[in-house]
Simulated assay, not measured.
Amino acid sequence: MTTSVLTLALDDEQATAALARAMAPLVQPGAVLYLHGDLGAGKTTFSRYLLQALGHQGNVKSPTYTLVEPYQLGELTAYHFDLYRLRDPEELEFMGIRDYFSASTLCLIEWPERGYGLLAPADLELKLQLIQGQRSVCLTAATAKAEAWLEQLQQELQA
């Protein structure tokens, strides 16, 4: 049975950290993750914990003003995008957006809808929500490899 959608409650920041740690060994070079959610929903928090779980030792700052922050994680280069302040998707063309997506990179993209039409398609979409003080995440696989990640993640969480 394939799992294409997985919804989880995130009771606190430690639950977000645990999800990121569980996902770190699953995501592979070449992966593209879209992070959706309102301001304060936890997109940057999830990104920070995922990058740290992948081996980043320093701070992870939100790339709100720079649009992208690179992280060298051994052989893997991860790019953390925050497109919240993007005024026009064409701005991405000027920064060479297509060069960031390759078989050897991991791309985490906050506010991907602001770059519609110019971004590589997502393997996995995460929709983080904060409703009446309760956080949750809905993970939706858009590729076969992301379906495999969700199956593994679900099995790990049930163990």
Rank of each mutant, 00 (worst) to 15 (best):
A31P: 05
G55R: 03
L139G: 08
Q72G: 13
L6R: 07
T45H: 11
L106H: 08
T77G: 03
T64F: 04
H36C: 08
L130V: 00
L83A: 10
A22K: 13
L83F: 10
A141Q: 03
G117I: 14
E151Y: 06
K61C: 03
V68Y: 00
G96R: 07
I131S: 08
L73H: 13
A17L: 06
I131K: 12
E156Y: 07
A22N: 14
Q158P: 02
F81L: 06
W149H: 05
P121N: 09
E110V: 02
H36T: 00
P112I: 08
E91H: 07
L51I: 08
Q57V: 11
H36I: 01
L150G: 01
S102F: 04
M23A: 12
Q154A: 15
A15M: 01
A148V: 06
F101T: 02
H80S: 01
A17C: 10
A9E: 12
A24R: 13
G133S: 11
T77Y: 00
Q158R: 10
T66W: 00
R114K: 15
Q129K: 09
L83N: 07
A31G: 10
L33K: 12
K61I: 05
G74F: 14
L157P: 09
K145Q: 13
E147D: 02
A41E: 13
S4W: 03
R87I: 04
Y100Q: 02
L54M: 15
L124R: 03
L126Y: 08
V137R: 04
M1S: 09
Y79T: 01
A103Y: 11
L19G: 06
L6I: 08
V27N: 06
K43I: 05
L139V: 08
P29H: 09
E69F: 00
I131C: 06
E113K: 15
K43E: 04
P25K: 10
L35M: 15
V68E: 00
L118V: 09
E13R: 01
Q52E: 15
F94M: 14
G42S: 10
L26S: 12
E91L: 04
E91V: 00
S47R: 04
A15W: 03
Q72F: 12
Q134W: 00
E91K: 10
Y84Q: 01
L51D: 01
Q158Y: 00
L126E: 05
A159K: 12
L86H: 00
L139S: 09
L19S: 05
T143A: 01
L139A: 13
G37W: 11
R21W: 09
S47K: 05
V5Q: 13
W111C: 10
G58W: 11
R87P: 06
Y79N: 01
L139P: 11
G42N: 12
C138I: 09
Q134R: 12
N59V: 14
A24H: 13
